[in-house]
């Protein structure tokens, strides 16, 4: 257990703090980093929905109908749209991380282009999949 003086959040602490989020002017690269973490967290919660759907499908027609009723409701569709967007945004962010791991795309202006490609790619893939979904319905 750390003693009080070594906790960064402790007002009594004499240690200097590094500047945090609220100090910086919002930048696209920063927003994409935050969005990567938020979409990751959203996908984490979304597994509950996926588990419900799979368990319902494995149970019987009545359970499956109940899950389908919720998922095709307005709220269900909004959640599924958010899930799809989170999935593709996080996927695009992951591809960006591969480039960084290879030591590329960290300089200006490449990093700005990559940040833009992340949100545009994530949104475009989401809309494409939903267009396909409605077309196949």
């Amino acid at each position: 257990m750390a003693d009080a003086g070594t906790r960064p959040a402790d007002p009594q602490s004499r240690r200097p703090l590094s500047p945090h989020l609220q100090i910086y002017r919002p930048m696209l690269t920063m927003m994409m980093s935050i969005a990567h973490r938020i979409t990751g967290g959203a996908l984490y919660a979304g597994t509950l929905l996926l588990a419900w759907w799979l368990i319902a499908a494995s149970t019987d027609a009545a359970a499956f109908a109940k899950a389908n009723w919720f998922l095709s409701s307005i709220l269900g569709r909004l959640i599924l749209f958010g899930f799809t967007w989170s999935l593709f945004h996080h996927l695009m962010g992951g591809l960006r991380h591969f480039l960084w791991d290879a030591g590329r795309g960290m300089e200006h202006p490449e990093r700005e282009y990559l940040a833009q490609a992340t949100w545009i790619g994530g949104l475009a893939l989401t809309l494409a999949v939903w267009a396909a979904a409605y077309a196949m319905r």
Partner: peptide, 25 residues
């Protein structure tokens, strides 16, 4: 896991898309 998830995510989305509008059986 990231590398593996790129093709697997595409496969998962494709799979779910093909199930849309189908009945239980």
């Amino acid at each position: 896991t990231s590398i593996a998830l790129v093709p697997l995510t595409i496969g998962f989305v494709w799979l779910v898309l093909t199930l849309i509008g189908k009945d239980y059986n």
